[in-house]
Every structure is written in C-alpha cells, then in structure tokens.
Design a protein around this nucleic acid. Structure first.
Lengths: 191, 191
DNA sequence: CTTTCTGTACCGACCAGACGGTTTGTTTGA
DNA sequence: TCAAACAAACCGTCTGGTCGGTACAGAAAG
C-alpha cells in the first residue's frame, strides 16, 4: 500500500469518526463521509468497497487505540483493574497528559453504532470477552465486576445526559472506584 | 376513543416493541410493524399519524409500566434504592411473581432507539433527572450512584452479550448490590 | 527522447431498492 | 346511512452501490 493511499484512508476513517461523534449514526452516510474527508464518493468506495468495510476499519482502529492505551497504563505500574478505571478518566483527570488520550466521547459514539448493528459489536466481542475474563479472577470478582459495570453505566448516562450528577459528586464516585480498584489489585498480587 | 381502536393501537405498540427487541432498530419500519400487527400500513397510519407518533407512544407506554412497577415495589416496603435494584432483577429473582413484570430486554431494546435518536431519550430525561436527584440525597450518594451505574452498565453488557459473567457470579453481584442498597436505605431512614 | 502502455487514485452521474408518508377507495358496525 | 376503521396503490426522497471515465506517474518500447 502506497503512502498516499494510506493518508486518504486515514482521512476517511477520521471523517466517519467525526460524523458519528458530532452528528449521530443516522448522518453517517457515504456521501457525508466522502464530503467531510474532501473526497468524492467514488474515491471513498475505491478505498473501502462498501459501507461495512469502512465501518469495520473504523472499529478496528479504535480497538487498537484502546489496547495501546491500556497497555501503556499498565506499564506505568497500574494494576489491571485500576488501569481499566483510569482508562475511562485519564484524560479528564490529567488533561495535561495529552499523550495518553482516550476519548470517552468516541467510545460512546461507537456504542451507538453497535446498538444499531450487532454485527459491529461482535467484532469486539471476542477481544472483550477475553479481557473481562481476567476480571473474574481477581481477589474480589464481584467488586471488580461492579466497578466495571459502573464505569460502563456512567458512560451511557453521560452520553444521554440523563441523571448526570454534579461535578463534585462525579469526582467522588471516580475517586472511590479508583480506590477500590487499587485495593483489589493489591490483594490480587498478594495471592 | 372506541374499544376496537384501542385494541389495534395496543397491537401496533406490541408489534413495534417486538420488532425492536428481536430484530433491532433498523428493522423497525412502518411496513414491518404493520405486517407484524396484522394491519395494513394505511391502518397503522390511521392510528399513529407518523412513525414518530408511534414510537413516542411506545416509549410512553414503557415509561408508565416502569413507574408502576417501581411504585408497587416501594409499596411492598423496599426503600428507594433497593426498589431500584430490584427493578432490574425482580423477574429473574422471582419468576413466580409474574404479576410484577419488568422486561430488562425490553428496556435495553429501547436504549438502542435512544441511541439512534436522542429525541426519544429526551422524553425520559425530565422524569429520570427528577428520579435520580433523590439518589443524590441518600445516606451515601457516592455508593448509591455506583449501584445505579452498575445496574445500567450490566444491562448494556447483557445486551451486547459482551463480557457476560457466569450465572453464579452474576447472582452474587446482584446480591451484593441489593445488600448495599438495603443498607443505604436503612441509613437514610435513620437520618 | 518521445511515444505508448499500464496501474493507481479518484471523480461524478446514474440506478435500484427501501422507506416514510399521501391519497383514494372499501368495509363494517352502530 | 354515516363515520370510524381499515386496505392498497402510489409518490418522493434518501442512500448504498455501480460504472464509465479522467489524471497522472512511471515503465516499456521504438
């Protein structure tokens, strides 16, 4: 694959991501993606032969980004559970650390894509199933899963803007989740 | 409104609900709803002048069902938080109590609708915002919100079938959530 | 050196099907 | 008989995808 082709492909994925984030799934049309990327529809379909191919590539790219961020958090010394919690909040807790960038908004946007078409959700399933399996083998699987679920629920709530608590309460919630995750990781290590 | 009309309207809402649950949002078309309900499209549009009117009615019906169930749980003596937890699991914990029926699958299906079109989500927003406000005034708002988020996250996870824990672990999670909710309600009452 | 050829990257008109909604006609029950 | 309760053909729009063509960079041929 040439360099030029790659640049265009990234532009197309960026465009698709931008649209799904800022305008919603139902505006995610081929024409719109092409227009946003500054390419014609023909150009788009040259690189991605179908809408599904485009969206699949988009999902795969995000998946890879997530994995890399998680790995880098673990390399910084965080245990598996705490690293997971921080995955959701690193950017907002430490905006200065732009290098580590998880985009919760982006993840949420993708969730809506999965909601519409289970096919795309299934692309994550294998990876995520394997990932969450380790969560069932920590020192306290019940608490670990509660932490995990809470983060996912929080994400949804924020997305819909429904029942969103004031900032201080939200910080307190995250702080407590991190605290507990930390404890669990410590306990797990001692075993 | 005549009786006959009412029956057909319920059939239409049932059909729409069935489709969104079993086939996903993108199959939720007027033709499909009409066909499932055993009515022509003309017949459908006689009762609900637009797709939006149909879906709004569908959302409102669910909303009402939820409120009734929650109220009945509270009348049985459960505190606000515990009643909320049981809202998510009453059917599965006590399948014999068919009278009290919340359909988690159904709620989840509706979430996908909200994901696609924020408009429908906004119809709940006011109600839910008011509802969750009381959760910020319990004896332990942080824990209360964690419980709430965990339940919502659990719902999502089940829907996508991603990272679903074995049945025993799931029961243990719910048991612990109920336990904590119970404690919080007790503490709140003493204040 | 120039002409021809070839493959990559891209354009944009067009098409077919799906879908929401309209209109017109028909049945049915009080 | 009259209005409510449907049925069914039809329409316009939107959207994913096709298709014939263009621009251009290099390789091959003369």
């Amino acid at each position: 694959m040439t360099n030029r082709s790659n640049v265009t492909k990234q532009k197309l994925l960026d465009a698709a991501t931008e649209i799904i984030m800022n305008h919603g799934v139902h505006h995610l049309t081929l024409d719109e993606v092409a227009k946003t990327a500054g390419v014609s529809k023909g150009g788009l379909l040259y690189h991605y032969a179908s809408k599904e191919a485009l969206l699949t590539a988009m999902v795969e790219r995000l998946q890879q980004e997530q994995n890399e961020l998680y790995a880098s958090l673990q390399q910084e010394g965080y245990g598996p559970v705490e690293a997971f919690v921080r995955l959701f909040d690193e950017t907002k807790l430490h905006p200065e650390r732009a290098a580590i960038q998880i985009d919760v908004e982006k993840m949420i946007a993708f969730l809506t894509l999965f909601a519409v078409d289970q096919e795309y959700a299934n692309r994550w399933k294998e990876d995520l199933d394997a990932f969450f399996e380790q969560f069932q083998k920590t020192a306290d699987p019940v608490e670990t899963m509660i932490i995990r679920y809470a983060l996912e629920g929080m994400m949804m709530s924020e997305h819909f803007g429904v029942g969103v608590p004031p900032a201080e309460l939200k910080q307190a919630i995250i702080a407590r989740l991190i605290e507990r995750a930390h404890d669990i990781d410590n306990q797990s290590e001692k075993q």
